[in-house]
Amino acid sequence: MNSILAAKGVSKKFGDYTALNNVTLEIPKNCIYGLLGPNGAGKTTLIRIINQIAYPDSGAVYFDGELLKPEHIANIGYLPEERGLYKSMKVGEQALYLAQLKGLSKAEATKRLKYWFDKLDIGDWWNKKVQELSKGMAQKIQFVVTVLHQPKLLIFDEPFSGFDPINANLIKDEILQLKEEGASIIFSTHRMESVEELCEYIALIHQSEKILDGRLSDIKKEYKNNIFNVGLQVAEENGILHKLEETHKIWSPNYLAADQQLEFKIQLPSNDTSALLSYLAEKGKVNHFVETIPSANDIFIQTVNSKTIS
């Protein structure tokens, strides 16, 4: 088995409400896996099941090939979306407490905390009370506590909320480094640009069901629909567009007279571009001819809208 985590037919109901319906997915080792979905889709329930906070009604979850059991908690680090710290406890004491709950010895936890506090330049917070810290500062502590026990699987739910852009970048770099060091990461967010940037694999959960999953690049290929951006240098427009519109779908045509440049988007029936290219080459000089690749955002919106049961 090459997956760090596998869910097989997981279902969960709360009373009459179905939170997860027969969800099956596999998270490969040593990758960043984006868990996406609209609000209330069931992501948090799935994450809670992985953390053994909730238990599935049916189906099973396997961690590193073994059926999920309480001892696996020591190998999972979880940064929940709803997160906080004890307000009246001192930062160092609290970090030690949370680390010890994850099974680290006090000495080991102290050593690693010192390392991380130095690394993130927050060493002088040790004896401060949490209520004296800003939200972003508290988030940093929580990040440290999440990764401190060097878990094999890390789960980040909206890890960048509450951070300014500089600190968000800092945390992003830390996440990438953790991946380099061999950790597998589940990343749940609504910020599609960070999905684009970080995730190798994604799964999309909508209305309690998984509707899409796989390697992000494969999904993008699948969602390509042979639309090309074309820039053609011609002296005069001369009915080129008119001719093309008879056989193809054309969007946003524009002729820049000053540059003698004709721009448009065109959809081809297949990805065979040779006929179109030779036609265009006859008419003028092709400045650019680029296939448009759907963004994660496009895929998200398109898939969710098409699958919404009204």
């Binding site: 999972i76 929940p80 906080g84 709950l101 994850k102």
Partner: peptide
């Protein structure tokens, strides 16, 4: 307090 400070989910992912 644990509920309002939202520390609860962090704790119960460990215990």
């Amino acid at each position: 307090e644990e509920k309002t400070s939202r520390v609860i989910e962090v704790i119960i992912s460990s215990v």
